[in-house]
Design a protein around this nucleic acid. Structure first.
Lengths: 353, 353
DNA sequence: CTGTTAGCGCCTTCAG
DNA sequence: CTGAAGGCGCTAACAG
């Protein structure tokens, strides 16, 4: 006879519904499970009415406890401040809503310790599966999941030694597309600017595509520049050195930014160096951002189908959750080139001041 | 003796730990609950070792079922594509991680139907509290929560007829700050451009601050422009009309953008109208965005302490969850003016082409 | 078609 | 200090 001190919201239970409807809990449970062919019309109506009247909602906790169907999906994001992650999250959340799942979100901030803790947290809630955008280093905890055949779909970044499904961009093709575009526009000295390659397969893929495209043009020069974007001024320094190194070669210089975070740093660096694009330097960026059309004459980009990536990843995960046991599958979606002023061909050599 | 067909990850249970450690489930439970003073050192060690060896993690589902402490917090976001929401989410997620909670995220896309469904979903998982960034219209389901004294903290937007706590920007002051800045810089014809005011208290607050500041300057002209940013070209049209209407008044025109989403539309519109700032028009935007420094001579902004808003909101929610019953509390944080080129005072009347 | 009986994994009295 | 027993809300055999 104790009163709940907590909220006053006494949760309506299946037992209450059963009692008020004058039936057994089992029947109510069947109703909830949609087993209508196992219920007389009379019962069905009584139960339906009572549920509506009481505003009853089954507890997913209790349901999950029994059968393991928690209808929960965990999502681990390497960096929630990265617009890419958010865009993918958007698609994933939409898919979850469509299929009746709920997303538990953890941001790891590219930290392996937090990644591990978050993994533990999600596990403790018996999520049915995981969408995983890993930070890349020290992936032992992930591997354990793999051995346990736990449903996991990787986002964007592959993990060595694990045979998880993956959904992401076709990085090699996209980078080829990007590089070819720059070459076609008459750029001859191109720097691919990326965050540290180590451990991040998508960056490596983009580099591979870049190199392949450059190799077809021995008359042109290509190099990869690694920048630490959390280190203030680093991008500007690296860029400056590159520019000094190549400016007198007589070629036309361009930069290919490896992702949206890098794009921002590059745009800021170019601004501080007073370099305009495309007059002084060509610029093409991975990731279409809200502001891509706005800066200078507009920045050309490789747009990723981010919403689709997130949505597809959830669908793939649900397939796994529903028991599919086939081999590892990679779903690579195509990037799209968005041409803007920053890669326009400049008539003649327009010298910087 | 049935094998789990699902994953092969046979969940380690408290019973297993108890058996292997040669103790009772109760003792293990005490260990988990931190009741060490009720355990002999020997037991404590045995249990600790066994837990570590088995990699046991208690099921939050089962825990929650019993006592209601699910350690789950639901977050309802009006629009995940709004950078503001993401920034707040960032802070909220960090706070959750700090305090051992996990976030269940739902995006309502500013749709009242989805808001209602998401609410139901979160409820079914027995979240202990809710962070709520409502779409504003039709708030009956929210009110029911209020009557049940369920812990809720509102983000950014107030809800009429509910006495929930709220964390957000001090919109009135921030708008005064913004408007004053424009006036000080010599702008005389100012348009506050916002999304529809109806039902969204933060927009109304910003308008109030704007009007208050304008009223102190009867020699200047201020008006509020509502735009529908999902309607292509609408912002440009409204802006164009405003510009035509005021350009011959001899005053200096400026725009105050009501939030980040609007800022983007305005920047695009101005670009298509070939209007430069500050030469042709002044521009000040609510919400500091990654690209604010990049466009034109840089866009002046009112920066919100978004991370802090999210973090504080969680902390406030936890206070409520832990039983605080005091009256409604509003925590309003201050905005910060970031001066850039877009509100620079222009020497003389610089006519547009 | 319907209800009874057992748990799911954990916490919480209540006895030793 | 320790453990046995009961129940949280729900589902899943197993009988009728």
């Amino acid at each position: 006879m104790r009163q709940s001190i907590k909220t006053g919201t006494e949760r309506v239970t299946i037992a209450q519904v059963a009692r008020e409807a004058g039936v057994s809990k089992t029947s109510v449970s069947r109703f909830l499970g949609g087993e209508f062919d196992a219920l007389s019309v009379r019962l069905r109506d009584q139960i339906g009415t009572t549920i509506a009247r009481l505003g009853y909602q089954p507890s997913q906790m209790a349901r999950g406890l029994k059968g393991g169907r928690t209808r929960l999906i965990g999502m681990l994001v390497a960096d929630i401040l990265n617009p890419y992650s958010v865009a993918v999250l958007h698609g994933a959340e939409a898919a979850c809503q469509k299929y009746g799942y709920t997303l538990m979100l953890c941001n790891t901030g590219n930290d392996e310790q937090r990644e591990k803790q978050s993994l533990a947290a999600l596990h403790s809630y018996s999520v049915e599966g995981l969408l995983f955008n890993t930070q890349g280093r020290n992936v032992t905890p992930l591997k354990e999941l793999g051995q346990a055949a736990f449903p996991v779909v990787l986002l964007d970044r592959r993990v060595e030694g694990c045979d998880f499904d993956l959904v992401g961009l076709d990085n090699v093709s996209a980078a080829q597309l990007a590089t070819s575009h720059l070459l076609e526009q008459g750029y001859t000295d191109i720097a691919l600017v990326v965050q540290p390659l180590y451990g991040v397969s998508s960056r490596q893929g983009r580099q591979a595509g870049f190199l392949q495209a450059m190799n077809r043009r021995p008359d042109c020069h290509g190099e990869t520049l690694e920048v630490h974007i959390d280190q203030p001024g680093h991008t500007a320094t690296v860029l400056h050195e590159f520019f000094l190194r190549r400016r007198n070669g007589g070629g036309r210089i361009a930069i290919l930014a490896g992702n949206g975070m890098v794009s921002l740093q590059i745009a800021l660096a170019l601004q501080s160096m007073k370099l305009r694009f495309p007059e002084d330097i060509g610029l093409l960026c991975f990731d279409e951002l809200a502001w891509s059309p706005l800066v200078g004459a507009g920045i050309s980009t490789i747009e990723q189908p981010t919403y689709e990536i997130g949505f597809t990843a959830i669908e793939r995960l649900l397939v796994r959750i529903n028991g599919e046991r086939s081999g590892r599958k990679e779903i690579l979606l195509d990037g799209r080139l968005v041409r803007r002023g920053s890669t326009a061909p400049v008539a003649t050599g327009h010298a910087a001041p």
